[in-house]
Every structure is written in C-alpha cells, then in structure tokens.
C-alpha cells in the first residue's frame, strides 16, 4: 500500500513541477510550489521522516510561499512570455540527468536494510541515544545534542541571511516611516 502511494505521490510531484516550470502566472506558480512542498511532506512521512515532514510543511510550504508572495507583491505577477525553448540548457540538463540516473543503477533498492548507509554509526545512535540523552526522539537528540554545534552554525547562517535581507530591503520600511 505505501509503495503504491509512494509511486503515485512522486509521479504527481513530477507533473506539478513541470506545470510550475511552464506556468506564466507567477502567483499561480507560487501557490503550486506550496502544494508541491506539501506533497513532498507527505512523501517524507511515508518514508518515516516525520521530523523532516513537519519542518517541510511549516517552512517549505508555509514560510517560502509567504516569501514568494511578498516578492511578487513588490515586483510583478506575470512572467514575460518565452516562446522558444533553450536547447543548450535542455542538452546540459539531459546529460546531467542521464549521468545521475546511470549512477543510481548501483544504488541499493528502496528500503534495503543491508544498504551501506545503515551499516555504520546509525545503530549506535539508535541503541544508546535513549539512555544517554533521555529523550525518545533520536532525530532531536542528534540535532540538539550530539551535533549541537552544527545547529548553532545553522542559526548563524539564518542570522546572516536575516542581516542580508534587512540591508537589502531596509530602505522600503524607512520610506514608509517618512511618509
């Protein structure tokens, strides 16, 4: 059952992505991107990544849609009509894609418990993190405790991005204050 759902949802995501790419109306494209993010959140849930799923639903579908709509309100809603396809870009993308698909032929099958990724440190976290950290959610204990410095680095990245946005757009608010 989950296999059918997985295939159906991923196919739907591909269709949506093509639609978003071809759409001239940017407002509709932004909303469709939100739907695309929600679909990916459902796929993450099917793949047992519940923490990733709710972050994607909140941040990917929520915040990024709001940011896109905000940008559209400050710029334009319609994309200029492009008639010809870019043959060179298509060629580059097809070569990259086929090389990557060729690479996946050596990958372990979906859900294979003997895949190399499951053979190293993951078991240690699954066995020990409960007693070492005292919280049942392994993702949380790795994120906030074992790799806490990485999360601190992530906060630094967001802080830097925030400063960048304020520097770039601060004059809009100043203009509003003067009026």
């Amino acid at each position: 059952m989950t296999e059918i759902l997985d295939i159906a949802l991923l196919s739907f995501m591909i269709v949506l992505a093509i639609a978003v790419s071809r759409m001239q109306n940017l407002f509709m494209a932004a909303m469709m991107t939100g739907i695309f993010s929600f679909l990916s959140a459902i796929v993450f849930t099917l793949l047992d990544a519940v923490d990733v799923a709710f972050t994607e639903a909140a941040v990917g579908a929520g915040v990024s849609t709001v940011l896109l709509l905000g940008t559209l309100s400050l710029t334009t809603r319609e994309e200029k009509i492009v008639k010809k396809n870019n043959a060179l870009a298509l060629l580059v993308v097809l070569i990259t894609g086929s090389a990557l698909i060729y690479g996946t032929l050596d990958m372990p099958n979906y859900g294979d418990p003997n895949a190399p990724v499951h053979q190293h440190v993951a078991d240690r976290y699954i066995e020990k993190s409960g007693e070492e950290m005292g919280i049942p959610n392994i993702v949380t204990s790795v994120l906030a405790s074992y790799r806490g410095y990485d999360t601190l680095g992530e906060v630094t990245v967001i802080f830097t991005a925030g400063i960048g946005v304020i520097l770039l757009l601060g004059h809009i608010w100043r203009k509003e204050d003067e009026q």
Partner: peptide
Amino acid sequence: NPLPHVLILTAIVVGIATLSLGLALVV
C-alpha cells in the same frame, strides 16, 4: 536511519535562508 533526517532538517532551514536572501535581491 535517523542520520539523513538530521542532515535534511538542517538543509531545509538553510534552504529557506538562501531563498529569502535571493528573493530580497530580486526585489
């Protein structure tokens, strides 16, 4: 396996940071 989940949680949040900076540049 919880480790890819941790990596991707970080990547999502960094992704939104780069998107917001990119959109600010577009404005």
